[in-house]
């Protein structure tokens, strides 16, 4: 179990786009992953308010969901997104780190089902929520 989390961590940390967003994997075990994205002015989607673009939130959500699949005890290796739905509940507060938590809540031989939540400093009111399905690959 420990090894699976270690392999998944190494994979996530080797993703070029995750590095471009300065993503930080803070927790990964048994089908749950937590990833942080620090505030960065290059990711602004609304220049008037300084709010981060929804696309950047999609990227952390997708990465976090993939990490949750890879560290699930029944996952054979890598994964690819089949579909991902994101609902945006509110604008993330400018200047604050976005923290996403994803859980792989069901897994079959071929498909993994995941949900995720993104929050900023106000952890009681999510910024966005996601649900997705992912393939299971023997290799990475």
């Amino acid at each position: 179990m420990l090894d699976k989390a270690k392999v998944a961590r190494q994979f996530i940390e080797a993703i070029p786009h995750a590095n471009a967003l300065a993503l930080k994997l803070t927790d990964i075990s048994n089908g749950t992953a937590v990833i942080e994205m620090p505030y960065d002015t290059r990711l602004i989607g609304d220049p008037r308010t300084g709010v981060i673009h929804g696309g950047a939130v999609s990227s952390v959500m997708d990465t976090c969901c993939g990490a949750a699949v890879m560290c699930h005890p029944a996952a054979p290796g890598g994964t690819a997104t089949i579909d991902l739905r994101i609902d945006y509940m509110r604008a993330a507060t400018p200047g604050q780190t976005i923290v996403t938590t994803a859980t792989c809540y069901h897994i079959t031989r071929n498909v993994a089902f995941v949900r995720a939540t993104a929050v900023d400093d106000d952890t009681e009111n999510p910024v966005a929520m996601a649900t997705g399905s992912f393939t299971l690959e023997k290799q990475f």
Partner: peptide
């Protein structure tokens, strides 16, 4: 560009980049 890669072994564009491109 290379920073858009999500799986360095295939390699393939990151699903988040694809989603962001569609949203933009």
């Amino acid at each position: 560009n290379d920073t858009q890669i999500g799986n360095p072994f295939l390699p393939a564009i990151h699903g988040g980049v694809t989603a962001a491109f569609l949203e933009v």
